[in-house]
Design a protein around this nucleic acid. Structure first.
Lengths: 220, 220
DNA sequence: AAGTCATATGACTAACTGGTCATATGACGT
DNA sequence: ACGTCATATGACCAGTTAGTCATATGACTT
């Protein structure tokens, strides 16, 4: 949690610091991200940073929380109907999740790296927490769909949830990047580079993935 | 490529250095892995390391090559019949790939992190090379299966290949770790901790994944 | 014994890192 | 004008890093 001092800061200064910090943590790993770099770019003194946050980890966790909130807000603005049919909901979530990654590359990357199972040891707890949230949600969805006989009853909800969960992250985005011969770094440096993907192409990819999953999971 | 000096080294010394270096690079990210640490553990002078390798990256790439060779040898020892039916081959590859990760945690982790699309910028080329190899293989397999009408013709081979490829890595292993409430670090520190997984459980998980994929891809 | 040559060494450098702290600033109340 | 107090500062610290290099070792040749 940031200290009160940070929250008392004028809006624009606070925002600038956040933006620069997000950018740093999104484009370098946690340990490689540099506080010295952030304060230099933000034009503040190193000491000030420690008036705002306890330490590096504190700052990082705060940014992750912001990213989570941002994603939540984004998802609420998208067409995601939690009462919809399982496969419809899956399609909507896949669409919304991928769009978030495309439109908010830094937040997306930040959350993706926080959920990376082979992340840094210092961040183990955070990692576990974030992944558990996502997987639990997915597992419950599947259980519900099984109760309604929409999904094969012989499938293990946990295993199936794990598989779907691994697709919900940056999976589709990575496919697009691969097709455009771009690395994640290229994309972060120039998010516009992915605007070349047409709406049709986007929809085609999502619907193919959904079809595969549907074929694999649905009761026949 | 290592320098001749390294290749001239007595077998046991060379092996010891390799083992320690693998351990270091497997358990910390490329940038966090420390040469100072490696030489200290190996009981050699820092300067010696630079008689053996050009620099850190050179060493890392060499270790990756070793890991690749090790995996190849491992796969050859497993029951993988490249002439088999597509879904049979997929099952065999999934089994063999996951087993490799279980039995050679460090090599497995090393290769997984080298293929991580959001890896470090210095390693971009290596990353691209490794991923391309894997994906190309998968894509060709799918194209062949489509020609034989074993896989739905309306599926985009590249997209489908990308999806399958993302499962072939540490996906299943990560599921097991999640079930045992272990992190990747725990597993690397104590590979035995996963021996608790019975053969039946292992087979069950693989066959469920294969069934899902089969349902999703096969011609009906 | 002298010379050669591949190999081994570790002190050293320059560049970083996260984090600290004594000091300074400047707005506010008295 | 004085005192107070939250905020801002950047020199500084101890620790780490990848990489260098003059020097030493020791086996093998002449």
């Amino acid at each position: 949690m940031p200290k009160q001092t940070f929250l008392n800061l004028p809006e624009d200064k606070r925002q600038r610091i956040i933006e620069i910090a997000i950018d740093e943590f999104a484009s370098r790993s946690y340990s490689k991200a540099s506080l010295s770099n952030i304060v230099a770019r933000a034009g503040i003194a190193k000491g000030s940073m420690y008036q705002y946050f306890e330490d590096k980890k504190d700052l990082y966790i705060y940014l992750l929380e912001l990213a989570g909130q941002e994603k939540l807000v984004f998802l609420q603005g998208q067409q995601v109907d939690v009462t919809a049919d399982f496969f419809t909901l899956f399609e909507q979530m896949l669409t919304a999740g991928t769009k978030f990654g495309l439109e908010h590359p830094q937040y997306g990357q930040l959350m993706a790296s926080a959920m990376d199972p082979s992340g840094e040891e210092v961040l183990k707890e955070i990692n576990v927490k974030f992944r558990k949230m996502g997987t639990d949600f997915m597992v419950n969805l599947i259980k519900k769909a099984q109760a309604e006989h929409k999904v094969r009853l012989d499938l293990d909800p946990k295993l199936t949830g794990h598989l779907l969960q691994s697709m919900m992250g940056n999976g589709i985005l990575e496919y697009f990047l691969g097709e455009l011969n771009l690395s994640m770094h290229d994309f972060l440096a120039d998010p516009e580079s992915v605007k070349r993907i047409s709406d049709e192409e986007f929809k085609r990819v999502i619907s193919q993935v959904v079809e595969i999953i549907k074929g694999g999971l649905e009761v026949r």
